[in-house]
Amino acid sequence: MANTDFIKEIAGEAQQIYKKHRILASLIIAQGCLESAWGTSELATKGHNLFGMKGEYNGQYVIMQTWEVINGENVQVPAKFRKYPSW
């Protein structure tokens, strides 16, 4: 998917979020592009999760490897990330 196509795909929802929560659509789109590699990251494709939100959504999640600091050391661990029905 081209970068412009990704923006077009999420722009409508970003505008709805702005109307409801007053978070600028441009910021939502920019953050979504940055954190999901324009919708191409594994988390974005497997879980429709553009912002790296951990946990569950309506009981749905995907397990992904993530880096955490434990006892002062960087370690890679599996973690639950929310899986959404769509972006």
Rank of each mutant, 00 (worst) to 15 (best):
A2E: 10
T4C: 10
D5P: 07
F6C: 02
I7H: 01
I7N: 00
E9D: 09
E9P: 04
I10W: 00
A11W: 05
G12C: 08
E13F: 12
E13P: 05
Q16D: 05
Y18D: 08
K19L: 09
K20I: 11
K20L: 11
R22F: 07
I23S: 07
S26C: 13
S26T: 12
L27E: 11
I28D: 01
I29M: 02
I29S: 00
A30E: 06
L34Y: 05
L34S: 03
S36G: 02
A37G: 12
G39D: 04
T40F: 01
S41N: 04
S41Y: 01
E42M: 14
E42Y: 14
A44G: 05
T45P: 07
G47S: 02
G47W: 00
H48K: 08
N49V: 02
N49S: 02
L50T: 01
G52F: 02
G52T: 06
K54F: 09
E56Y: 13
E56L: 15
Y57S: 15
G59R: 07
G59C: 11
Q60F: 08
Q60L: 14
Y61S: 15
M64Y: 05
Q65F: 09
W67G: 15
E68K: 08
V69P: 07
I70S: 13
I70M: 11
N71I: 13
N71V: 13
G72N: 07
G72L: 06
G72W: 06
E73T: 12
V75W: 02
P78W: 03
A79M: 04
K80N: 13
K80P: 07
Y84M: 06
P85F: 04
P85T: 05
W87A: 12
